[in-house]
């Protein structure tokens, strides 16, 4: 069940079907079509609202609803974005977010891929037991680690560092990553591996030359998940850093004066969405595959 059923189900049409029957079916479906259309529009409104709000000048925002922009496009201005671009914290925060997200995506992939390979294809005693522990760790709430790691980070001197945040995201991404990759690797045909082993290839070589290329679809799914997760994080950065503010934390500190500075919050929030949304639309297929592999067995 790992293929995303993105295409609408194929409806086989009888070419001899009378036009009247076709119209009849169209009419009976009409209420449902209208219902779904309304739902679709309803679903778009909130994000659209944020975008249009970000285009209102602070003085217009104080008196107008954001939907007025649709009828009166002259109300829209990019001035807020210019302001955010020149803001003291926010551009820097976006850069920092990118650093954390890239690091927090690559590192767990490397670590989880090697562990996933071991769990799938190397025999060793206690393998199933260890994997059961990984599965158990899947649902441990992040809150369980905040206090001890806050103390440990201070002791180790990695509190408020980018590497500290990356390591935290790596660790909490690992259970899902190992689970996903192990399940994918185990589906690789045994013959391919056996013949490579008979040919005398080392495990490292098999891992690098066979498993990683064959596992690419699963790794892509995982990469998107992990990227979105680290990019969108608030809790970890809020707890484990102070001056190293990713975009969510930067906006959060603006939020404490909500209302007065919506002209910063709205465009900054929208800018924080652009990259995850871009990644999402570009790789939607992999995202859904990962989702299904992770939740549906």
């Amino acid at each position: 069940m790992t293929t995303y059923e993105a295409e609408a189900p194929v409806v086989i049409r009888d070419p001899s079907e009378a036009p009247a029957a076709r119209i009849g079916r169209f009419v009976t479906k009409l209420p449902m079509q209208i219902f779904l259309l309304c739902v679709g529009v309803l679903w778009l409104i909130p994000a659209l609202g944020l975008f249009l709000t970000s285009l209102l000048s602070p003085t217009d925002y104080a008196v107008e609803g954001w939907w007025k922009v649709i009828a009166h496009p002259h109300l829209a201005t990019w001035a807020n974005y210019g302001e955010v671009w020149n803001h003291t914290d926010i551009p820097h925060s976006l850069l920092l977010t990118a650093e954390i997200a890239v690091g927090g995506t690559l590192l767990p992939i490397v670590i989880a891929a090697s562990a996933g390979y071991a769990f799938a294809w190397i025999d060793f005693p206690g393998r199933d037991w260890l994997f059961v522990i990984v599965i158990a760790l899947l649902v441990v709430p992040l809150q369980m680690a905040l206090i001890p790691m806050f103390r440990l980070y201070n002791t180790l001197g990695i509190y408020d560092t980018v590497i500290g945040l990356i390591l935290f995201h790596t660790a909490f991404g690992l259970p899902f990553a190992i689970f996903l990759l192990r399940n994918f690797f185990i589906g690789i045909p045994r013959d391919i591996l056996e013949s490579a082993r008979i040919d005398g290839a080392s495990e490292i070589r098999i891992f690098l030359r066979l498993i990683l290329p064959l596992g690419l679809p699963a790794i892509a799914s995982l990469a998107i998940f992990q990227f979105l997760w680290t990019w969108n994080d608030l809790l970890v950065a809020l707890t484990m850093a102070q001056s190293k503010q990713p975009i969510t934390v930067a906006i959060f500190s603006q939020l404490r004066q909500f209302g007065s500075n919506i002209d910063i919050i709205a465009p900054a929030s929208f800018m924080s969405l652009v990259i995850p949304l871009g990644v999402f639309f570009a790789f939607q297929r992999y995202f859904v595959q990962g989702l299904l592999a992770g939740s549906v067995k």
């Binding site: 739902v39 679709g40 679903w43 778009l44 909130p46 994000a47 609202g49 944020l50 709000t53 954001w66 979105l228 990019w231 969108n232 994080d233 608030l234 969510t248 906006i251 959060f252 939020l255 909500f258 919506i262 919050i265 709205a266 929030s269 924080s272 969405l273 995850p276 949304l277 990644v279 999402f280 939607q284 995202f287 859904v288």
Partner: peptide, 19 residues
């Protein structure tokens, strides 16, 4: 359309709905 909010951070979701 319905799936799209999955890519949006829950934090930004809060800002969106606050508005």
């Amino acid at each position: 359309v319905v799936f799209m909010p999955m890519a949006i951070s829950l934090f930004a979701t809060g800002v969106i709905w606050h508005v």
